[in-house]
């Protein structure tokens, strides 16, 4: 699946987008966030507070219990500030 990061999540992880296979044992958004957090210091810092992160799967907002499938486009970003 494709995973994208925006705003300070992009800066902290040093990643704007990447291709990932759904890691073993991970089934939902929350699981993926915990898996990403354990990667390195940058990801740990970006994903240190779940409450500050919004998630979209295939361009729609989802909650952290949303079940993931390979082929999904998952995006992590802060609360939006447009307008």
């Amino acid at each position: 699946m494709k995973v994208l990061y925006f705003a300070w999540l992009k800066e902290k992880t040093g990643t704007s987008q990447e291709e990932l296979d759904l890691p073993e044992g991970v089934s939902d958004v929350e699981g993926l966030m915990h898996w990403l957090r354990d990667r390195d210091n940058g990801f740990a810092s970006a994903f240190s507070k779940d409450a500050l992160i919004r998630v979209a799967v295939n361009h729609e907002y989802v909650e952290q219990d949303h079940v993931l499938a390979n082929g999904d486009e998952v995006a992590f970003f802060p609360p939006v500030t447009g307008g």
Partner: peptide, 21 residues
Amino acid sequence: KTKAPFWKKENASSGDQWVEA
């Protein structure tokens, strides 16, 4: 303002900062 995925980063006198919702 609360649904479209845009993010503002301000170039402020004290440095660059992401605008908080």
